[in-house]
Nucleic acid binder design. Structure first.
Lengths: 171, 171
DNA sequence: ATTTCTATTTATAAGAA
DNA sequence: TTTCTTATAAATAGAAA
């Protein structure tokens, strides 16, 4: 019946190059679609293989999306964590003499030092990076030693800190 | 030539139901393939939309896999450093310019500084958080950010727990 | 745990809503 | 930001290596 212009509504999917989408509008749409697809895949993986998984994404609009595929004991775990954090208050580190602003100063200071150390480490790292073949994130951390794990935990801490800064306006 | 049984090597992909794969061997293969696909998708999303993203997965074999897609992330730098160090020790790829002993010295030194900064930052951050307006985790559940953070903290705790389970000395 | 090989199943780029 | 549609690009189940 439709021999001319009612048969095809779209040209269908097209191949694209994996590189930053410049047009803001398109980037937005692509993000929405692909994030959706990613989370779906993630949930399928969780169900199929009975594993736990977490994804955190910062959208182009600086919004945070998460995908946590598994639900058990969220409360208990969280409470445990909180309990651990609360111990801090018992240490009375928050005396009258120290004001919030001053801490922020120290915080910034420490950050600077940390940045310097990072740069130093990055330099050293560059020397060894030459022979790297696979993507670092594709490796399991199963075989890390204690020190390496410590670094790893610290990197997690960094991420947490960034999250706090980003959302709680701390610092 | 092959009219009977040499033409098709496989039956091709089959539709499956999304539910726990019972056969351990198959589950393992499925996990490997789909995790790979998931990480690939994740990285494409990061590149296409210029966003930051992190994934943590606990494999069926209790291994931890991570995908942190973004460029100058602290996490990436530190992780790369970790991998680089490991590979250095394994392959001795540092040329004549830097001797192994010297490298280790610098490593130990940087490690100490980082440990100190880490603790310092943790303390300061805790102070800032508490002095802000009480525990951030008590924020309304309607607060997206708060919820996200809670979930993230849980993830971190889970990670710690798993590491501890492996008898690692992580605090 | 990762990878090869195909036939199929899925995910999606575009365009518009 | 998510959804709808269609034609096409990609991912992947199953069997083995």
């Amino acid at each position: 019946m439709n021999t001319i212009n009612q048969r095809k509504k779209t040209m269908g999917r097209k191949k694209i190059e994996i590189k930053k989408v410049e047009k803001e509008a398109n980037k937005q749409v692509t993000f929405s679609k692909r994030r959706s697809g990613l989370f779906k895949k993630a949930c399928e993986l969780c169900i199929l293989c009975d594993v736990h998984l977490d994804i955190i994404v910062f959208s182009p609009a600086d919004k945070i999306f998460r995908c946590g595929c598994s639900q058990p004991s969220t409360d208990a775990v969280l409470k445990s964590y909180i309990r651990g954090t609360t111990e801090f208050e018992d240490q009375q580190l928050m005396g009258d003499s120290l004001i919030y602003e001053e801490y922020n100063k120290e915080y910034e200071e420490a950050l600077k030092v940390l940045q310097m150390e990072k740069k130093k480490l990055a330099d050293i790292e560059n020397l060894a990076r030459v022979s790297k073949r696979g993507a670092w994130w594709n490796d399991s951390i199963d075989d890390m030693n204690g020190e390496e794990l410590e670094y790893f935990m610290m990197s997690i801490f960094e991420l947490k800190k960034n999250l706090l800064k980003k959302n709680m306006n701390i610092s």
